[in-house]
């Protein structure tokens, strides 16, 4: 950058100080007036809608064969049929029941173990190492073993989901407990809280954000575990519906099942979000809503 063209310094020794040249002013346009008139939700939906239209066009022109992927129209129709004849609702009910059972069991086991190893030093020594070891075993790999142990009924399916749910919860609750601010614990002590009082008023509320994060992971894994469990010798549930559809090359039914999985996952996420909003009201991020 050259400064040779800079104006001469205004401070003349003569003292006849000229008033400083007034700069050209520029209007700063408010952000609201620059926004396009298209509402955000409309812009956001154009992407998926375009894809959907493209998919339908490809299917209608025959470029996308029905045994590779059914057309959106066909899928809607099949979904209507499956709901009408009651096979989809009943499969959903069974799958939901399995997930709920596994989730409850896994939550009890995971949280219980995390409390033992988080709150007591001896619990940590006894519990943490085995749990950390088991955690590294991919739980899906245990399906054959579970079938040998529990047969092919409901038990192995629920056991797989339980196992998948337990570890993320354990890790997050344990980390939550151990991550509680020691300053707050000390403050609680200085207020004369008993050991149980410290756990109830300081440690557990402090571990709650971590626990809810764990719950979210667990829910995701619960659906994953369900898909695995139901595709190995099941005779009911969404997974069974999919396996059956595969045998008959019914890509339309498979896509319907996938969409159901997606919606159930969204529903689960919504539930955890609501829980967070309710239980973590004290966090500044939640006061504004």
């Amino acid at each position: 950058m050259s400064i040779s063209h800079a104006p001469p310094h205004p401070s003349d020794a003569a003292g006849t100080a000229k008033p400083p040249a007034s700069p050209t002013l520029q209007r700063l346009v408010p952000a609201s007036s620059r926004r396009s008139r298209l509402p955000r939700w409309l812009r956001r939906t154009t992407g998926p809608l375009t894809l959907l239209v493209l998919w339908q066009v490809l299917s209608s022109t025959g470029a996308l064969a029905p045994d590779v992927l059914a057309s959106p129209g066909r899928i809607t129709q099949v979904a209507g049929d499956l709901i009408a004849d009651g096979s989809l609702p009943s499969a959903m009910g069974i799958s939901l029941r399995r997930v709920a059972a596994g989730l409850v069991l896994g939550t009890v086991v995971g949280t219980g173990l995390a409390l033992i190893s988080g709150l007591f030093r001896i619990g940590e020594d006894v519990v943490d190492a085995p749990v950390q070891m088991l955690r590294t075993v991919p739980f899906v790999g245990l399906i054959p073993l579970f079938i040998i142990w529990f047969g092919i009924g409901e038990t192995p399916k629920i056991a797989i989901i339980t196992l998948g749910v337990t570890f993320p919860l354990y890790l997050n609750v344990y980390a939550g407990i151990r991550g509680v601010d020691t300053q707050l614990i000390e403050a609680g002590e200085s207020l004369g809280l008993s050991r149980w009082g410290l756990v109830r008023h300081v440690v557990l509320p402090g571990a709650l954000p971590g626990a809810l994060t764990g719950l979210r992971y667990s829910l995701g894994i619960a659906w994953l575990a369900l898909v695995f469990a139901e595709q190995v010798n099941a005779d009911s549930g969404i997974g069974f519906l999919m396996v059956q559809a595969r045998d008959f090359l019914r890509t339309d039914v498979i896509v319907v099942c996938l969409i159901v999985y997606a919606f159930l996952g969204l529903l689960a996420d919504f539930i955890v979000r609501s829980l967070e909003r309710l239980l973590l009201r004290w966090r500044p991020t939640f006061t504004g809503r």
Binding site: L191, G192, G197, P205
Partner: peptide, 26 residues
């Protein structure tokens, strides 16, 4: 009967102000 105030307020963020004040009272 002792009372302590630290450099940081050390209030339990998950308790409303009045519950913080009463915390630990028998």
């Amino acid at each position: 009967r002792r009372g302590v105030a630290f450099q940081a307020p050390r209030l339990m963020p998950w308790k409303r102000v009045w519950r913080n004040v009463l915390l630990g009272l028998p």
